[in-house]
């Protein structure tokens, strides 16, 4: 029995056990690379995706929890030809080093900007608190999220 949900706007029903982690479904039968394994314990944020618009740790969440819901990953955020303002800002400001943490950070930031279109720096820091970055790209990341917020604001 496959669990059905929408992934980046398209209906899917991955061939995997209901109690397998959502991350395993995304990276396994669904073939994505954006959501990443970091710790498997909800402590680093590398696996964060959006479930009905809210950030969740995909490493521990059973696929069954996504049934009938909307799952969004960094692959659904934008493409090189049509980047999301966050992706554009991260590239413009070179906000990353190794980049392994970025998928989760981009998704948490996207959720923040939908909820709070013009966040303060403190609000961005708070939203990204569950996310670890070991390379020390934090300040660039903060600036990029604030830049994207500016770009997305109605003129």
């Amino acid at each position: 029995m496959s669990v059905a949900f929408t992934l980046n706007g398209a209906p899917v029903a991955p061939d995997i056990e209901d109690d397998a982690p959502l991350l395993a479904a995304l990276r396994g039968p669904l073939g994505l690379s954006g959501p990443r394994f970091g710790c498997g314990a909800e402590q680093c944020g590398a696996c964060v995706v959006l479930l009905d618009g809210a950030p969740v740790f995909a490493c521990n969440l059973p696929v069954s929890a996504a049934a009938g819901k909307r799952v969004e990953t960094v692959e659904g955020l934008g493409t090189p030809d049509a980047p999301h303002p966050l992706q554009r800002a991260f590239l413009d400001l070179q906000a990353g080093q190794c980049g392994y943490c970025l998928s989760g950070i981009l998704m948490a930031s996207a959720a923040l900007l939908r909820r709070v279109p013009r966040p303060t720096e403190a609000q961005v820091r708070e939203a990204l608190e569950p996310h670890l970055c070991r390379c020390g790209a934090h300040n660039r990341i903060l600036r990029a999220v604030l830049r994207a917020a500016e770009d997305m604001a109605p003129a």
């Binding site: 959501p35 990953t73 934008g78 493409t79 090189p80 590239l91 980049g99 970025l102």
Partner: peptide
């Protein structure tokens, strides 16, 4: 290498 990393 960064574009690949921000587009997953």
């Amino acid at each position: 290498d960064l574009p690949d990393k921000v587009f997953g």
